[in-house]
Each structure stands twice: as structure tokens, then as C-alpha cells.
Simulated scan of single mutants.
Amino acid sequence: MSKELDFKAEIVGVYGTPISDNPTGVMFEFAFKSLDINWRYLTLEVSEQNLKNAIDAIRALNFKGVNLTIPHKVAAMKYLDRISPDAEVIGAVNTIRHKNGKLIGENTDGKGFLKSLIDNGKVSPKNQNIVVLGAGGAARAITTELALAGAKQITVVNRTVTRGEELVDRLNKYTKTQAVFSHWHPNYAIPSDTTILVQATSIGLYPNIYEYPQINYESLKSSTVVCDVIPNPPNTKFLIKAKKRGCHTLDGLGMLVNQGVIAFEMWTGHEAPRSVMHEALTKVFKV
């Protein structure tokens, strides 16, 4: 059969709940179209109780892979055949690739954030004092990559003590960065020597666009680079408040595009059209 008469589409997608706010499919669909390849990206609502069945379906339906978002990045690991070494250290996966009948867990979140920080934020994490709000899947990936890139100290700020201390213990075990835990209370003051602040929770994610992390914003210095991992909306209340303090800010679109580029190339074997993917998202959000 000639290529022109091959009607089979290759399927990838994203699992999460809630999922309707997730814009990842927009950039993938634009990328597939720009390269004229017959691939489709499905945005799929998958509950926690149905996660195992959904992962089994990757094999049954011969999906090439899926992304994972809240709340599946940690729970999915036990249903996979293999975890990449870096994702093992992170303790979370955000991407699954299906190869020769095996499901392999990868983590592209931290790498995507790091590239965005360096390329768009114009700052290297090397020898920096960094504060990260949150200790979930995104925070695990980001702190690991920051540590491996030479961060001097990473302070993990989290409301659940056990979860925050677990992440700090993991960082101190697997990396050379000094990691410390700080309990998150509503008027938490950002330490004065902080050079990079990362908001790595879901606070402010659509539809809760008027919410923002409860910290002492008066403690923010204008010299601090302030980052939010949330892509929808890109200009979160958190970033708006940081801008008012004179801080250089970095939204979540760069991280989303960069991690998507890595997944795209893992799945398709094609070089990802990065500029097309970024443009697709900027059009959607009118930024």
C-alpha cells in the first residue's frame, strides 16, 4: 500500500484529572500538521481509580505513548515496565513511551524547565540559592535538574512536612546540592539570599485563576528571578505580584514547550518544530 493510501494514525495523548484546562494538545497538533505526519494527540480525562486500566490501554490500543499530568506522575510508576535512570532519581514520570511492547517512564519536566530558565530567564542555576514552592511531581523533577546543574542550595517549601522532607532527603542522597526543608505557612518570607524562586504547585491553574501562593510578597527582592510552572494562564496572579516587586518573571509556557519537544522527538523520531509549538500556544493565550 502506498503512503498516500495509509489511513492509520499514530496516537499519543495526555492523561490527567482535571484535564480540560491542559493546552498540550494544541502545540502537538500544530507540530504534526507542520511536518505533515499522520499523528493525533488526545486529551483524556483519567481518574485515579482508572489509571491502571488507562495505562494498560496504551498497549491494547498501540498508542505510541502519553504524557501524564496531575495527579498521575508518581502513581503511574508502579504500572510501567521500566523507569529511566533520571526519572528514578526524580521519583516521578510525566511521559510514557511505548517501545516493542514495553512501557518506559521518562521525565521531561525538569529538563524543560531548566532550558526555559537558561534560554528565556537568562540565568544559570549554578551556585544559586533557589527556593521551590511545592513537593509534588513537578517540584521533584525541577529540583533534581536544578541540583544536577550545580545549584548551591535548594530550599523546598511545602505544607505537608513528610512530603517535603522526603524530597529533601532524595536530593541530598542523589545530588551534591545542599537541600533543606522549610514548612510553608501563609506569611512565609522568602530568604533574602534567594536568587531564583520557583512556584511548582497547581495554585492559580485554570479555572482557579485568581488564586496565588500565600507567601510574604514584601520579602521578594527585585534581583530575584521568579518562575511559575503553570501554563494556563501564563500570566498568573503569582507572577503579577512578583512583577510589582520589580522581579524578572518567567511563565510556564517555555517549560511546557521544551518538555513537549523532548517527548515529541522520543515518540516520533522527527526533529520537533519548536517555534511552531511555541507559536501555537502564544496564539491560544494571546501573549
Rank of each mutant, 00 (worst) to 15 (best):
F7T: 04
K8A: 07
I11C: 06
I11S: 00
T17S: 11
I19V: 08
D21M: 14
M27C: 06
E29V: 03
K33G: 03
S34V: 04
S34L: 10
L35D: 12
I37T: 03
W39H: 08
L42D: 01
L42H: 12
L44W: 09
Q49S: 15
Q49P: 03
L51V: 12
A54H: 01
R59H: 12
L61W: 09
N62R: 12
F63G: 11
L68Q: 11
T69K: 03
L80I: 14
I83P: 05
V89T: 00
I90R: 02
A92P: 06
A92R: 05
K102A: 08
L103R: 08
G105N: 13
G105Q: 08
N107P: 08
N107I: 11
G110D: 00
G110I: 00
F113N: 09
L114K: 13
K115M: 01
I118L: 14
D119I: 08
K122I: 14
K126N: 05
Q128L: 13
V132L: 15
A139K: 13
E145F: 14
L146P: 06
L148S: 10
A149Y: 10
Q153P: 00
I154W: 14
V156L: 07
V157E: 10
N158K: 02
R159L: 05
V161C: 02
G164P: 01
R170Q: 05
N172T: 06
K173V: 00
Y174E: 08
T175P: 02
K176H: 10
Q178T: 15
Q178Y: 11
N187P: 10
Y188F: 15
A189F: 06
P191K: 15
D193L: 09
T201M: 13
L205R: 15
L205K: 14
I215T: 06
E218D: 13
L220N: 04
K221S: 13
T224M: 14
V225S: 11
V229R: 00
I230P: 01
L239G: 14
L239P: 10
I240R: 07
R245K: 15
D251C: 06
L253M: 01
G254N: 03
V257Y: 03
Q259R: 04
I262P: 02
A263T: 07
E265Y: 15
M266Y: 11
W267T: 02
A272H: 11
R274E: 02
H278Y: 15
E279Q: 15
E279D: 04
V287F: 03
